Computed example of a mutant assay.
Amino acid sequence: MNAAVPICAIVPPYVLDRLAEAGHEPAVRSLALDTAHRAARLTAPPPTAGARGLNRVIADTGHSQRLPGRTVRTEGHAPVADPSVNHAYDGLGDTFALYAQVFGRDSIDGRGLRLDASVHYGQNYENAFWNGRRMVFGDGDGRIFGDFTACVDVIGHELTHGVTQFTAGLEYQDQPGALNESVSDVFGSLVKQYALHQSAADADWLIGAGLLAPGIQGVALRSMKAPGTAYDDPQLGKDPQPAHMRDYVNTTQDNGGVHINSGIPNHAFYLLATALGGQAWDRAGRIWYDALTGGGLSADADFTAFARATVAAAKARYPDRSSIADTVSASWAQVGVSPG
């Protein structure tokens, strides 16, 4: 895919905006970097076939803003002394494992794309992002956010932006953008659940649990189980995510609320996975994956279009079990979206 790819970062711009307005210097620097990256609108290289199987390369920018940095660990090499390098390496592997072992996908492009990541980006950089070519991780400042390599679901989230890039190519604006973010949250959570061998009932359904520094009043960046409850902190503000279309947020911020309104499809997936029971990647995850990669979604798909795609995917995958498609429809109805 040669189209311009949005810079998709895990910490929403409205969170950094609030911190920057309060004079939090790392957030001021991070917001400036994020703004510059988004303005660049990188053109991703076309997917190129690599060696079959997992192939990771981790680089260290040495707190500079120059990418990719110095290569510090490659596929098959032993752990190094730097935990950020090892966390990134392991998280790339966990993400690859979910897509390969559950969905039969060879890396994020489906053609063996090498997984590249850079750690220690910038000075106390308060974010992690996929730039269309590689994962980039900041260290956080320890006061608001910790090391961004430490949460495997954050890594799964960001790499899934690559999967979306190479499949449905959902636009990064308004409802298509919220779907883009939601799909990354869904599969980021599934990466964590798969790595931990958790059932849907056992999972915490949090995105970025452990990322907030001690003293911050919150548990994560987002909650799929209960959107709007992940944090409520004097510095961060209150989690703005809705769980239902009646509370849909119309805004010009955040590309039309892509990190905000993603709570609605996130909650639909949570409802489906817990209603079906067992391991969320097994049935609910396969349905979402089929909808994303099946070729039937347009880049400007809204929530209703995606809901219809998931119902169609459930019928196609489970033709003799109509109750599964009915449960998909019911899950969307519970968040105010009618598949029709």
Rank of each mutant, 00 (worst) to 15 (best):
H120Y: 04
D106A: 04
L113M: 14
R111T: 10
N124S: 15
I144M: 15
N131V: 03
F129S: 01
Y99G: 02
G140Y: 03
E126H: 15
R73Y: 00
Y99K: 00
H87G: 10
L98S: 02
L113C: 05
M135P: 00
N127F: 08
Q123Y: 00
G142W: 06
A88G: 14
R111A: 12
V85P: 00
V102Q: 10
S118F: 09
G112H: 04
H87P: 01
D139K: 05
V85M: 00
V80W: 01
Y121A: 10
Y125C: 09
V72I: 14
F145L: 13
Q101I: 11
S107P: 04
F145I: 10
G76N: 08
R133W: 00
D139G: 11
D116R: 08
G140I: 15
L115K: 01
A128C: 15
R133C: 08
V85I: 15
H77A: 14
G132V: 01
Y89Q: 01
G140K: 11
D109K: 00
G110H: 03
P83T: 10
T74M: 12
R105Q: 12
F103A: 09
A97K: 12
S107Y: 08
Y121Q: 04
R114H: 11
P83F: 08
R114Y: 05
Y121N: 11
A78Y: 03
S118L: 15
A78C: 06
A81T: 15
D109E: 04
V72H: 02
H120D: 15
A117Q: 00
G104H: 09
G138R: 10
F103T: 13
L113T: 14
A100W: 08
H77W: 00
A117R: 01
V119R: 02
D82Y: 10
M135R: 01
E75K: 01
W130Q: 01
G122D: 05
G76S: 11
V72A: 03
F96I: 05
F96P: 03
R143V: 09
Q123C: 13
R111Y: 10
M135N: 05
V102N: 03
P79M: 04
V85S: 02
D106W: 06
D141W: 06
G140T: 11
R134Q: 04
T95P: 05
L115W: 06
G104R: 13
R114W: 03
A97V: 04
E75L: 03
Y99V: 01
Y89R: 02
S118Q: 07
G132C: 02
W130H: 05
V85C: 09
P79Q: 06
A88C: 13
R133D: 06
T95K: 05
D82S: 11
R143D: 07
G138E: 04
R73W: 03
R114S: 06
P79K: 05
A97W: 06
Q123G: 12
Q101K: 15
F137Q: 00
G122F: 03
S107Q: 11
V119K: 02
R105I: 14
A81F: 03
P79R: 08
R111C: 04
A100G: 09
T95D: 00
P83S: 14
A78N: 05
Q101N: 15
